[in-house]
Computed example of a mutant assay.
Amino acid sequence: MIPWEHLDTAAIPGEAGTLRLMRRGTEYSIQLDRNELMNSRLSGSEEALARLSAERVAGVKAPRVLIGGYGMGFTLRAALSLLPETAQVTVAEIVPAVLAWARGPMAKLTGGSLDDPRVSIREADVAAVIRERPGAWDAILLDVDNGPDGLTRTENDRLYDAAGLGAARAALRPKGVLAVWSAHPDAAFTRRLGQAGFSVEEVATRARGKRGARHVIWLAGR
């Protein structure tokens, strides 16, 4: 078997942990310390996050979409393939090295998506971007942790608590959607979404085809 090659390490702003970029042949892995966050062979549920969100804004002439967390770009690429040419897509990524990896060793995976004229990049905390302006977005897509808790950054907890969900709801336009990716179900988070005033749909999806790990996407309508 081809061994893993360690390509780079990046500090997470404000945290003690680090992200590691690994490669094995044509396969890439981003790890939080020693725990794998994402793998280039497993993109199904991230693509579903984009597809389900795009379906919710299909009637909007020029949708404004915020994607929290670039990762390996699966959600961004899928969103661009589904959204109209009039769409505006903002990607908020707090770790600059992740974007450098996308343009460097993982450029083939990126496929030019970061240079799409519909895309703007913010090297910023998505929680701060959400709070900047009310009624700014038709869809907010969050894939910054392995679930609705601050795994990669403890500060990310504020995305999923009552105040964070209230901020996300305020940032959405009428009939907008907050879509949240998770590696596991979380009944308490489903209840918090409802308590924040969202209509909630919980969708089960697969990481890869029909046999991959089961993941969850919440679609919270304003």
Rank of each mutant, 00 (worst) to 15 (best):
W4K: 12
W4Q: 13
H6V: 15
L7P: 07
T9S: 13
T9E: 13
I12S: 07
I12R: 09
G14W: 06
A16V: 10
L21Y: 09
L21S: 12
R23C: 06
G25V: 12
G25S: 10
T26H: 13
I30H: 09
D33E: 15
R34W: 13
N35V: 14
N35Y: 14
E36K: 10
L37A: 10
L37S: 09
N39V: 08
S43R: 13
G44P: 10
G44C: 12
E46A: 14
E47R: 15
A48E: 11
L49F: 11
L49M: 10
R51Q: 15
L52K: 07
S53R: 10
E55R: 12
R56L: 13
V57Y: 07
A62Y: 00
P63Y: 02
P63L: 07
V65T: 06
I67P: 01
I67W: 03
G68Q: 07
G69Q: 05
M72W: 11
M72H: 07
M72L: 14
L76K: 05
R77Q: 13
A78P: 00
S81L: 08
L83P: 07
P84K: 09
A87T: 02
V89Y: 07
T90Q: 14
A92Y: 12
I94M: 13
V95M: 02
P96E: 04
L99N: 02
A100Y: 00
W101Y: 04
W101N: 06
R103N: 03
G104T: 04
A107C: 00
K108C: 00
L109S: 04
L109K: 05
L109N: 04
T110D: 08
T110P: 01
G111Y: 01
G112F: 00
S113I: 01
L114R: 07
L114W: 12
D116F: 13
R118D: 06
V119N: 12
I121D: 05
R122T: 08
R122M: 14
E123Q: 14
A124H: 11
D125I: 00
V126N: 03
I130P: 08
E132V: 09
E132G: 09
R133T: 15
R133V: 14
A136L: 10
A139G: 10
L141V: 01
N146K: 03
G147K: 11
G147S: 08
P148L: 03
G150T: 02
G150K: 08
T154P: 00
D157R: 11
D161F: 04
D161I: 04
L165A: 04
G166T: 11
G166L: 02
A170K: 13
A171S: 12
A171W: 03
R173C: 10
R173G: 02
K175R: 14
V177N: 01
L178H: 05
A179H: 02
V180Q: 05
V180I: 13
W181C: 08
S182P: 11
A183L: 12
A183W: 03
P185I: 09
D186W: 02
A188P: 02
F189C: 07
R192G: 03
G194W: 04
Q195Y: 00
Q195K: 11
F198N: 03
S199N: 08
V200F: 10
V200K: 10
E201I: 04
V203T: 12
V203S: 04
V203M: 12
T205C: 15
R206E: 10
K210T: 15
G212C: 12
A213C: 09
A213Y: 11
R214F: 06
H215V: 01
I217N: 04
I217M: 04
L219V: 08
